[in-house]
Design a protein around this nucleic acid. Structure first.
Length: 254
DNA sequence: ATGGTAGGTTTCCTA
């Protein structure tokens, strides 16, 4: 089982990148964030031709999540009982017996802003929901753009980012609180190159200079730890013309 | 303190 996550920053613009990447990597599941695509326009046919089924919850202009999978996605959930939210940021489904939860965590804009408060509240509600979900789905993988760099080693310049958005103590605590439910950060279960990042700002030649953050994650429940064989960030698509500002993260299970 | 870039359908908002 190979499970991946990728913030594509507009599926319309990035469709050829996604199709090429699917063909090259052949994942069983690919979770997408920031599709920025209304459901009526989702490219079901192109993905079907590539061998993937799609489920999606999109909206105009912003947000939007999808799960692409070789096998059918069942028991789809996109609205939490404790979170009424027009923003399409959550999509969960069971694929081949694996519970997949795809999250596009709010960015938060700036520490102390209204959007920051929304982010922390959103995370707290997702925390409550995941605690219940875990009871029913011991084989659970929570993936997505968390918009949180968990530790200073996930930040190119920890001093410059100190207590800034994506790096503030409350955000990092919320991330640790999710882990404490019974998940581990798959990426850190393996030896990794130093300065491994999953997002680089489009500005200031961020990618070329590797001025990035690791904010895209794959969390695996306890029951899956032994079967997880590898987790890596694939920076190759970021080198292409008109890339997403995020790279895919991939976990391989035996 | 600010700007730099990208995507959307914009005369700015979000990231």
């Amino acid at each position: 089982m190979k499970i991946a996550t990728w913030n594509v920053n507009s599926l319309r613009v990035r469709l050829t990148h996604v199709l090429d990447w699917l063909q090259h990597e052949q994942p069983d599941v690919l979770a997408l964030q920031e599709t920025k695509t209304e459901d009526a326009n989702f490219p079901v046919g192109e993905l079907e031709s590539a061998g993937y089924r799609s489920i999606f919850r999109g909206q105009k202009t912003y947000n939007g999540v999808a799960i692409l999978s070789r096998k059918p996605a069942l028991d789809v959930v996109s609205d939490l009982p404790n979170l009424e939210d027009p923003q399409r940021r959550i999509l969960a489904a069971t694929v081949d017996g694996w519970r997949i939860v795809n999250l596009y965590v709010p960015n938060g804009s700036e520490v102390g802003s209204d959007k920051y408060a929304y982010k922390l509240d959103w995370l707290a509600r997702v925390h409550v929901w995941l605690e219940q979900e875990l009871l029913h789905h011991p084989r659970m993988v929570v993936v997505g753009d968390f918009n949180i760099a968990p530790e200073d080693c996930d930040v190119h310049d920890p001093a410059a980012w100190h207590e800034k958005i994506l790096c503030s103590a409350p955000e990092r605590q919320a991330f640790r609180d999710l882990l404490a439910l019974g998940f581990s950060d798959a990426f850190r279960a393996f030896e990794q190159p130093e300065r491994s990042f999953s997002w680089w700002d489009y500005r200031m030649n961020g990618f070329r200079r590797n001025l990035g953050l690791r904010i895209d994650h794959i969390l695996i429940s306890r029951g899956l730890e032994k079967s997880c064989q590898a987790c890596r960030i694939d920076a190759e698509p970021r080198k292409r013309e008109r890339p997403s500002d995020h790279a895919p993260v991939v976990a391989q299970f035996g």
